[in-house]
Amino acid sequence: MYIADETWPELGDYFENESLAIVPLGSTEQHGPHLPLATDHLIAEGFAREAADRTGYLCTPTIDIGVSPHHRQFDGTMWVDAPVFRDYVESLTRNLAYHGIDRVVYVNAHGGNVEHLREVGRRLRDEEVLYAVEWMWNDSIPELVDDLFEQNGPHGGPKETAMIQYLRPELVREDRLADARDDGVESVEAADTTKHGARTYYDAIENSDNGVFGDQRDATAEKGEEMFEAATDQLVRLCEWLAERDDSELMPSPHV
Rank of each mutant, 00 (worst) to 15 (best):
203 D>Y: 14
69 P>V: 00
134 E>K: 00
131 Y>E: 12
130 L>Q: 07
17 N>E: 13
205 I>V: 08
50 E>S: 14
130 L>D: 07
224 G>R: 09
30 Q>K: 04
148 L>E: 07
131 Y>N: 04
246 D>I: 02
92 L>K: 05
69 P>G: 01
193 T>P: 04
2 Y>A: 04
250 L>I: 08
167 L>G: 10
200 T>D: 04
137 W>F: 14
22 I>A: 02
31 H>V: 01
233 D>F: 02
117 L>C: 00
26 G>V: 07
234 Q>N: 10
245 R>N: 07
76 G>H: 09
238 L>E: 05
70 H>I: 01
10 E>I: 04
249 E>Q: 13
103 R>F: 10
66 G>A: 00
29 E>A: 13
138 N>L: 01
73 Q>M: 11
214 G>E: 14
135 W>Y: 06
91 S>P: 02
57 Y>T: 05
253 S>N: 02
128 E>V: 14
51 A>L: 10
256 V>S: 01
243 A>F: 03
6 E>G: 05
115 E>Q: 10
34 H>G: 09
215 D>I: 07
89 V>C: 03
207 N>T: 13
195 K>W: 06
119 E>F: 03
194 T>S: 09
217 R>Q: 15
81 D>G: 01
229 E>R: 15
235 L>S: 08
54 R>E: 15
135 W>S: 02
238 L>T: 12
67 V>M: 00
139 D>Q: 05
187 S>F: 04
82 A>N: 12
241 W>G: 05
88 Y>E: 06
42 L>F: 10
118 R>C: 04
159 K>I: 02
52 A>M: 00
39 T>N: 07
181 R>F: 09
136 M>L: 04
210 N>P: 10
235 L>N: 09
77 T>F: 08
28 T>P: 05
96 L>S: 11
160 E>F: 06
122 R>H: 12
104 V>P: 13
50 E>K: 14
98 Y>Q: 12
156 G>T: 11
256 V>L: 03
103 R>C: 12
113 N>C: 00
14 Y>M: 12
196 H>F: 14
56 G>C: 08
78 M>R: 11
1 M>V: 11
182 D>W: 04
82 A>Y: 05
63 I>L: 13
170 E>V: 11
149 F>M: 07
117 L>H: 00
240 E>I: 15
239 C>Q: 02
27 S>M: 02
251 M>Y: 09
48 A>E: 02
60 T>P: 07
251 M>G: 03
156 G>W: 03
250 L>R: 06
16 E>H: 06
227 M>T: 13
51 A>Y: 09
229 E>F: 05
120 V>G: 06
200 T>M: 15
97 A>N: 15
231 A>F: 04
241 W>H: 11
23 V>E: 12
183 D>E: 12
141 I>W: 05
112 G>D: 00
70 H>N: 14
253 S>H: 08
189 E>Y: 12
77 T>D: 06
54 R>Q: 15
191 A>T: 09
